[in-house]
Deep mutational scan, measured.
Amino acid sequence: EPLWIRPDAPSRCTWQLGRPASESPHHHTAPAKSPKILPDILKKIGDTPMVRINKIGKKFGLKCELLAKCEFFNAGGSVKDRISLRMIEDAERDGTLKPGDTIIEPTSGNTGIGLALAAAVRGYRCIIVMPEKMSSEKVDVLRALGAEIVRTPTNARFDSPESHVGVAWRLKNEIPNSHILDQYRNASNPLAHYDTTADEILQQCDGKLDMLVASVGTGGTITGIARKLKEKCPGCRIIGVDPEGSILAEPEELNQTEQTTYEVEGIGYDFIPTVLDRTVVDKWFKSNDEEAFTFARMLIAQEGLLCGGSAGSTVAVAVKAAQELQEGQRCVVILPDSVRNYMTKFLSDRWMLQKGFLKEEDLTEKKPWWWHLRVQELGLSAPLTVLPTITCGHTIEILREKGFDQAPVVDEAGVILGMVTLGNMLSSLLAGKVQPSDQVGKVIYKQFKQIRLTDTLGRLSHILEMDHFALVVHEQIQYHSTGKSSQRQMVFGVVTAIDLLNFVAAQERDQK
Results as ranks from 00 to 15, higher is better:
residue 329 Q to F: 08
residue 506 A to H: 09
residue 306 L to C: 01
residue 378 L to K: 03
residue 475 E to S: 04
residue 255 N to I: 00
residue 288 N to F: 09
residue 443 V to N: 10
residue 448 F to D: 03
residue 369 W to Y: 05
residue 375 V to S: 09
residue 459 R to I: 13
residue 464 L to Q: 13
residue 322 A to V: 03
residue 492 F to A: 12
residue 253 E to N: 13
residue 478 Q to P: 15
residue 501 L to A: 05
residue 456 T to S: 08
residue 503 F to S: 07
residue 246 S to A: 06
residue 329 Q to E: 11
residue 378 L to M: 10
residue 350 R to N: 10
residue 262 Y to D: 00
residue 348 S to E: 13
residue 404 F to Y: 08
residue 329 Q to W: 04
residue 251 P to K: 04
residue 272 I to A: 03
residue 468 H to L: 15
residue 507 Q to N: 15
residue 487 Q to M: 15
residue 291 E to D: 12
residue 475 E to D: 13
residue 322 A to N: 04
residue 319 V to L: 14
residue 443 V to D: 10
residue 351 W to E: 01
residue 377 E to Y: 03
residue 415 V to M: 09
residue 425 M to T: 15
residue 365 E to T: 14
residue 268 G to C: 01
residue 476 Q to I: 15
residue 445 Y to M: 05
residue 241 V to T: 11
residue 431 A to D: 15
residue 462 H to C: 12
residue 349 D to P: 06
residue 251 P to N: 03
residue 374 R to K: 14
residue 270 D to Q: 04
residue 459 R to H: 14
residue 310 S to W: 00
residue 430 L to P: 13
residue 406 Q to E: 11
residue 328 G to V: 08
residue 298 M to D: 11
residue 319 V to S: 09
residue 377 E to W: 08
residue 385 T to A: 13
residue 482 T to S: 15
residue 318 A to Y: 03
residue 487 Q to T: 14
residue 338 S to P: 08
residue 508 E to I: 11
residue 491 V to Q: 07
residue 504 V to D: 10
residue 385 T to M: 09
residue 499 D to F: 03
residue 456 T to Q: 04
residue 316 A to M: 05
residue 340 R to F: 02
residue 351 W to N: 00
residue 280 V to S: 15
residue 444 I to P: 13
residue 472 V to N: 06
residue 507 Q to A: 13
residue 423 G to Y: 04
residue 488 R to V: 13
residue 270 D to A: 02
residue 253 E to Y: 07
residue 336 P to R: 04
residue 338 S to R: 08
residue 466 M to N: 04
residue 295 F to T: 15
residue 244 E to H: 10
residue 481 S to M: 12
residue 353 L to Y: 14
residue 447 Q to M: 12
residue 487 Q to R: 14
residue 265 E to F: 00
residue 463 I to R: 07
residue 414 G to Q: 11
residue 281 V to M: 14
residue 296 A to L: 02
residue 480 H to M: 09
residue 301 A to K: 03
residue 290 E to T: 10
residue 490 M to H: 12
residue 450 Q to V: 08
residue 445 Y to D: 09
residue 460 L to H: 01
residue 291 E to S: 13
residue 378 L to W: 05
residue 411 D to W: 12
residue 247 I to W: 06
residue 317 V to D: 08
residue 265 E to S: 00
residue 313 S to L: 01
residue 340 R to A: 02
residue 505 A to Q: 09
residue 368 P to N: 10
residue 463 I to K: 13
residue 312 G to T: 01
residue 339 V to A: 09
residue 286 K to H: 00
residue 281 V to S: 05
residue 398 I to H: 06
residue 406 Q to C: 10
residue 357 F to S: 02
residue 305 L to S: 02
residue 317 V to C: 10
residue 366 K to W: 09
residue 269 Y to N: 05
residue 346 F to I: 08
residue 268 G to H: 02
residue 476 Q to K: 11
residue 491 V to H: 09
residue 326 Q to M: 15
residue 500 L to C: 15
residue 413 A to T: 15
residue 329 Q to Y: 09
residue 412 E to A: 15
residue 242 D to Y: 01
residue 326 Q to R: 13
residue 498 I to R: 03
residue 305 L to M: 12
residue 495 V to L: 15
residue 369 W to M: 12
residue 405 D to H: 10
residue 507 Q to S: 13
residue 382 A to Q: 14
residue 423 G to C: 04
residue 489 Q to H: 15
residue 401 E to R: 03
residue 310 S to M: 01
residue 442 K to T: 14
residue 335 L to V: 12
residue 310 S to N: 06
residue 289 D to S: 00
residue 430 L to E: 13
residue 500 L to P: 15
residue 329 Q to R: 11
residue 258 E to T: 12
residue 507 Q to F: 13
residue 429 L to K: 09
residue 433 K to T: 12
residue 244 E to D: 11
residue 364 T to F: 13
residue 319 V to T: 10
residue 381 S to A: 13
residue 262 Y to N: 00
residue 254 L to A: 09
residue 372 H to D: 14
residue 243 P to Y: 06
residue 257 T to P: 05
residue 497 A to V: 15
residue 314 T to S: 14
residue 392 C to Y: 15
residue 398 I to S: 14
residue 286 K to F: 00
residue 439 Q to H: 14
residue 340 R to N: 06
residue 446 K to T: 13
residue 476 Q to L: 15
residue 266 G to I: 02
residue 279 T to I: 12
residue 431 A to G: 13
residue 334 I to R: 07
residue 286 K to I: 01
residue 290 E to I: 05
residue 422 L to T: 07
residue 281 V to Y: 06
residue 436 P to T: 12
residue 274 T to E: 02
residue 294 T to G: 12
residue 241 V to R: 00
residue 482 T to A: 14
residue 474 H to N: 04
residue 415 V to N: 04
residue 423 G to Q: 06
residue 277 D to S: 03
residue 238 I to P: 05
residue 248 L to T: 02
residue 304 G to Q: 00
residue 258 E to V: 11
residue 303 E to V: 02
residue 255 N to D: 03
residue 431 A to L: 12
residue 448 F to G: 12
residue 355 K to Y: 10
residue 412 E to C: 15
residue 315 V to T: 07
residue 287 S to N: 07
residue 423 G to L: 09
residue 431 A to N: 12
residue 268 G to M: 00
residue 428 S to M: 06
residue 470 A to D: 05
residue 481 S to Y: 09
residue 334 I to C: 06
residue 467 D to V: 09
residue 452 R to I: 04
residue 493 G to P: 13
residue 273 P to L: 00
residue 412 E to H: 12
residue 278 R to F: 02
residue 499 D to V: 01
residue 430 L to W: 11
residue 324 E to Y: 12
residue 464 L to K: 07
residue 403 G to A: 08
residue 297 R to M: 01
residue 467 D to G: 13
residue 416 I to E: 03
residue 331 C to R: 04
residue 294 T to S: 14
residue 344 T to L: 02
residue 455 D to P: 09
residue 263 E to P: 03
residue 411 D to F: 09
residue 354 Q to C: 04
residue 246 S to D: 03
residue 511 Q to R: 13
residue 265 E to W: 00
residue 459 R to N: 10
residue 348 S to C: 04
residue 354 Q to R: 10
residue 448 F to E: 07
residue 414 G to C: 13
residue 253 E to I: 14
residue 367 K to T: 11
residue 356 G to L: 05
residue 451 I to Y: 11
residue 306 L to M: 07
residue 435 Q to F: 13
residue 270 D to R: 01
residue 263 E to C: 07
residue 373 L to G: 10
residue 376 Q to K: 10
residue 301 A to I: 12
residue 462 H to S: 08
residue 342 Y to S: 02
residue 438 D to L: 14
residue 279 T to P: 14
residue 384 L to P: 03
residue 347 L to S: 02
residue 426 L to F: 14
residue 416 I to H: 08
residue 451 I to E: 04
residue 394 H to E: 11
residue 247 I to K: 09
residue 348 S to F: 06
residue 408 P to A: 10
residue 463 I to G: 13
residue 492 F to M: 14
residue 463 I to W: 04
residue 424 N to Q: 13
residue 247 I to V: 15
residue 413 A to M: 15
residue 315 V to Q: 07
residue 277 D to V: 02
residue 303 E to N: 02
residue 316 A to I: 11
residue 435 Q to N: 12
residue 350 R to D: 08
residue 371 W to N: 09
residue 505 A to Y: 07
residue 266 G to E: 01
residue 279 T to K: 13
residue 338 S to K: 08
residue 377 E to G: 10
residue 389 T to A: 03
residue 398 I to P: 07
residue 439 Q to I: 07
residue 260 T to I: 15
residue 421 T to I: 14
residue 375 V to T: 07
residue 297 R to S: 05
residue 419 M to Q: 12
residue 258 E to R: 11
residue 265 E to Q: 05
residue 393 G to T: 12
residue 366 K to E: 13
residue 321 A to D: 11
residue 443 V to G: 15
residue 268 G to S: 00
residue 431 A to W: 09
residue 315 V to E: 07
residue 316 A to N: 11
residue 484 K to W: 15
residue 495 V to N: 08
residue 499 D to W: 02
residue 447 Q to N: 15
residue 362 D to N: 06
residue 346 F to T: 02
residue 476 Q to R: 09
residue 289 D to E: 06
residue 292 A to M: 01
residue 353 L to I: 12
residue 291 E to T: 10
residue 278 R to E: 02
residue 454 T to S: 07
residue 380 L to Q: 12
residue 419 M to I: 14
residue 365 E to F: 10
residue 418 G to R: 05
residue 401 E to L: 03
residue 349 D to M: 04
residue 336 P to K: 00
residue 259 Q to N: 09
residue 395 T to Q: 09
residue 445 Y to P: 07
residue 277 D to M: 01
residue 247 I to T: 11
residue 385 T to F: 08
residue 291 E to A: 14
residue 436 P to E: 15
residue 276 L to N: 01
residue 335 L to T: 00
residue 317 V to E: 10
residue 443 V to M: 13
residue 384 L to E: 12
residue 430 L to S: 14
residue 324 E to W: 08
residue 428 S to C: 14
residue 316 A to E: 12
residue 286 K to M: 00
residue 313 S to N: 05
residue 509 R to P: 12
residue 355 K to R: 14
residue 346 F to C: 05
residue 460 L to T: 05
residue 330 R to S: 12
residue 268 G to L: 00
residue 441 G to L: 14
residue 303 E to L: 05
residue 334 I to Y: 00
residue 350 R to V: 08
residue 243 P to K: 01
residue 487 Q to N: 15
residue 403 G to D: 15
residue 430 L to K: 11
residue 490 M to N: 12
residue 483 G to W: 13
residue 375 V to Y: 07
residue 347 L to I: 10
residue 461 S to H: 09
residue 484 K to G: 08
residue 478 Q to D: 05
residue 508 E to D: 13
residue 271 F to E: 02
residue 322 A to Q: 02
residue 490 M to E: 12
residue 316 A to L: 13
residue 503 F to N: 06
residue 286 K to V: 01
residue 260 T to A: 07
residue 249 A to R: 02
residue 374 R to W: 10
residue 316 A to G: 10
